[in-house]
Amino acid sequence: MNRSMIHAANTMSQLQQRLDLISHNVANVNTVGYKKREATFSEMLYQQFDNQFDERFENNRLTPMGIRQGVGAKIGATKLLLTQGAIQQTERPLDVAFSKAGMFFQVLVEQNGQQAVKYTRSGNFQLTPVGQNDVMLVSDNGYPILDANGNSIVFSREATDITITASGEIVAQSANGIPQTFELGLVQVNRPQLLVASGGNLFELPPNQNAEEIVNELIGVRRQEAGIQQGALEQSNVDLSKEMSEMMLTQRAYQFNSRSISMSDQMMGLVNSIRS
């Protein structure tokens, strides 16, 4: 196998991963609060052949000395973009949207018998019955939304006129006229590239990592920074036209590399057919 085939084969596997990433973004173009990911490429190891050892004969050379032969490109990193998505008004009391980037709700998720706190931007909340007289605030996937103390938010079943303020305070009027008040558990993400996607439009912290380095809880006066809008939802920040353009470019690059393998195979066939 010659170098052109190695170069193309290595690059094609990485282009396939980029296609998968773009396809995932396109599939979530209508997912509430979804944040897209972008892939950046970097050069793999290369080998240099020095065919000119005397620099005096290369006075006007603008490129590095010798000939460099690489072995393809790879995905250097995938970047999570927390840019603000468009705000769509719904007038539904349990729909809330962040008007600032980097803010997340806290969600309690139970998997394999263990409970873990995860984060989401999706604000299309629901109410689910708990016992006979209460209801609990949950995400669109049915996971409990946590308050500022890390507890589930439970209302009286007869609660009406639910109001959510810009700082994340929930006030529900009960039948006896006594309001029930809660504070949504809110965090600000400082290092989004360390968040781990766990499916269902949720993110979690990586294992063995100090949580304070990645997220900060919004408590006290910092809750005024949340910028929550009631009766609205934040749409995905995926630009469909851009994603389709990136998909076409990636597919074309994949085709070129595939063609390179075919041409290399033909060249090797010609060499092998030569008879002395």
Rank of each mutant, 00 (worst) to 15 (best):
H7L: 14
A8E: 04
H24R: 15
N25G: 08
N28L: 13
N28I: 08
F41I: 11
Y46D: 10
N51D: 10
Q52V: 12
Q52H: 13
F53S: 11
E55M: 12
E55V: 09
R56W: 01
M65L: 13
G66H: 06
K74H: 11
K79M: 08
K79T: 11
A86P: 01
E91M: 07
D95G: 03
F98I: 06
S99G: 14
S99P: 00
V109K: 12
E110H: 05
N112A: 14
Q114S: 07
V117R: 12
R121H: 03
S122I: 00
Q126N: 13
Q126I: 03
L127Y: 06
S139Y: 07
N141M: 14
N141W: 03
N141S: 12
G142T: 11
Y143P: 03
A148T: 05
N149R: 12
S156Y: 01
S156W: 02
D161M: 11
T163K: 15
A175W: 04
I178W: 00
N201F: 08
N201D: 08
N201V: 10
P207M: 08
N208Q: 15
N208V: 07
E212S: 15
V215I: 15
G220F: 03
A226W: 02
G227L: 05
Q229G: 00
Q229M: 08
Q230N: 11
G231Y: 06
Q235W: 06
V238P: 09
L240G: 04
T250I: 10
I261R: 11
M263N: 12
M268A: 14
G269M: 09
V271D: 05
I274S: 08
